[in-house]
């Protein structure tokens, strides 16, 4: 049997705090330091779905075998809540006018406070990079 539809409104909300910062400092004439950071805290969720208790709902729950129109928990299956941190530390040393050395450390960290169909996605990823640079110009 068919008892029509049951509906209600629900609110969906996205919230994000995003912070960026970069600091450059010339420690010595030949040494420079660079620090960059990004932090974001984001969430996306919808409010509990509270279906109205209408006469048709009561009838449907009686007539339809084991129908359950309590949807008040479904929002919790797909809520998202992430914290993301990215830090970069860079150090540059000018050995001479044409040769330099640098070191860069990139650090990424994701904290997943909710988990979704992929499971909890919290993880860390970092890259340490170092090398020499040569600059030339001329005929």
């Amino acid at each position: 049997m068919h008892y029509g539809s049951l509906y209600t409104e629900t609110d969906y909300e996205v919230k994000s705090h995003i912070l960026n910062g970069t600091l450059s400092y010339q420690l010595m004439p030949s040494v420079a330091l660079n620090v960059q950071g990004t932090f974001s805290k984001s969430s996306a969720s919808f409010d509990p779905v509270e279906m109205p208790q209408t006469p048709l709902r009561t009838l449907a729950e009686e007539k339809i075998h084991l129908a359950n129109y309590d949807y008040s928990t479904i929002h919790s299956y797909s809520d998202l809540d992430y914290q993301f941190l990215n830090l970069r530390l860079g150090l540059t040393y000018a050995i001479s006018k044409i040769v330099g050395w640098d070191l860069v450390i990139d650090y990424y960290d994701l904290t997943d406070n909710q988990g979704y169909v992929y499971g909890v996605e919290s993880g860390t990823f970092y890259v340490i990079r170092t090398g020499f640079s040569i600059y030339r110009s001329g005929k």
Binding site: H2, E9, V14, S16, F46, I64, A67
Partner: peptide
């Protein structure tokens, strides 16, 4: 960043 939106949650009552 704050984004809000309301929407419908609807379900058919049927066997």
């Amino acid at each position: 960043l704050l984004q809000t939106q309301n929407g419908i949650a609807a379900v058919a009552m049927m066997d």
